Computed example of a mutant assay.
Amino acid sequence: MQRRAAGVYIAVFLVIAAGAYSLIGVAQEPTVSVENPDRTLSNQGQKFNVDGRQYNVTSLSGGSAEVAWTQQSATYSAELTNNSTIEQDNTTFRLLIPNQSKPNQATLREVQNLTNDTQTVTQSNQTYVVVNGSDNGSSANKSLVPVDEYKRQQFGEPETRTLRKGNNFQYQNNSTTVSNITKESVMLQWKAPKTTTTSLSSGGTADLGPNNKTFVAHAQGGKVLLSSDVKGYNEQNAEINHFHERIAGLWGVSILSFLAALLLAMLAYMPFKG
């Protein structure tokens, strides 16, 4: 009687396992589709417009793309800190700002470097250059010359340039304007083209256009489709995730039912003594 009951339970579990497995076999996975894309990117070099801003497809491969747009007159800025050095007309200058709360100007002073074989000494916080006399370099004929005075003797007066707010200033091959001067730094500004690149990958979103309109990208047949219906696209993905969860549950039912039937069979038909 016990074996007969066990046989019934075994059959039930096997039916459940087979039913779950058959459902897995016939289930069709939903797919994401974009029926009416706002933009279709089909080849490199393609141009398209979003709210008046023109984009250029700079790359397109493997279901992803890069698009770029160029702002012809973007504002750039740079900060020159006090006591820093810059290159101007093949000459090195040091930026010197007066120690004032609101300085109205700054000075660029030419940097005059001593040669490597120039001997210097420091006495009482003052640097001197050791100058040899005419008697074959005898120490008795050596003299000490303040380093600034020695540089004037060797190079002449250092070149200086004055910077004021509103002045034009050539910096790193850009024609800049001095926008502000503080006791810590000099601020420069200039206009130049600026290219902004945006990467698009399937399933990812990107903000395009001057109004930052959000698009979702979808790869299809070597193309990248852009859709502004982000909510609808995400709902399709959520449906796919739910499908996978249900399939995983059916696999669990099928495997556990089969293992239960196997365990019952082993216990019910196990030989016993007596």
Rank of each mutant, 00 (worst) to 15 (best):
P103C: 07
N104W: 03
T107N: 09
L108H: 05
L108N: 06
L108W: 02
R109W: 02
E110V: 02
V111I: 03
V111W: 00
Q112E: 10
Q112K: 12
L114N: 00
L114W: 00
N116R: 14
T118G: 03
Q119E: 12
Q119W: 05
V121S: 13
V121T: 15
N125W: 03
Q126N: 11
T127I: 06
T127A: 08
Y128D: 05
Y128N: 07
S134F: 12
S134Y: 08
S134T: 09
D135R: 08
D135M: 09
N136H: 13
G137L: 06
G137S: 08
S138I: 02
S138K: 10
S138P: 00
S138E: 05
A140T: 13
N141M: 13
K142H: 09
S143M: 14
L144V: 03
P146N: 07
P146D: 10
V147G: 04
V147D: 04
V147H: 00
D148P: 00
D148L: 10
D148T: 09
E149G: 02
E149H: 10
Y150Q: 02
R152V: 05
R152H: 04
Q154W: 04
F155V: 07
F155A: 11
F155N: 14
F155T: 03
E157V: 11
E157C: 06
P158H: 05
L163G: 02
L163C: 07
R164F: 04
R164A: 13
R164N: 15
G166R: 06
G166A: 08
N167R: 07
N168E: 12
Y171P: 00
Y171V: 05
Q172P: 04
T176Y: 06
T177G: 10
S179I: 05
S179A: 12
N180W: 11
I181N: 02
I181P: 00
K183T: 15
K183L: 08
V186N: 02
V186G: 01
M187Q: 14
L188G: 02
Q189R: 15
W190I: 07
K191G: 07
K191E: 12
P193G: 03
K194R: 13
T195A: 04
T196W: 04
T196G: 03
T198R: 10
S199Y: 05
L200W: 05
L200I: 09
L200E: 03
S201R: 11
S201P: 04
S202M: 10
S202D: 13
G204W: 10
G204I: 09
T205N: 13
A206S: 14
L208M: 04
L208G: 02
G209P: 02
G209Y: 03
G209I: 02
N211E: 06
N212R: 12
K213V: 11
K213W: 08
V216I: 15
V216A: 04
V216G: 03
A217N: 01
H218A: 06
A219P: 00
Q220V: 07
G221E: 09
G222F: 08
K223C: 04
K223A: 11
V224P: 00
V224M: 03
L225C: 07
L226G: 06
L226S: 07
V230S: 10
K231D: 13
Y233K: 01
N234V: 14
Q236N: 05
N237M: 14
N237L: 14
A238K: 10
I240T: 10
N241K: 15
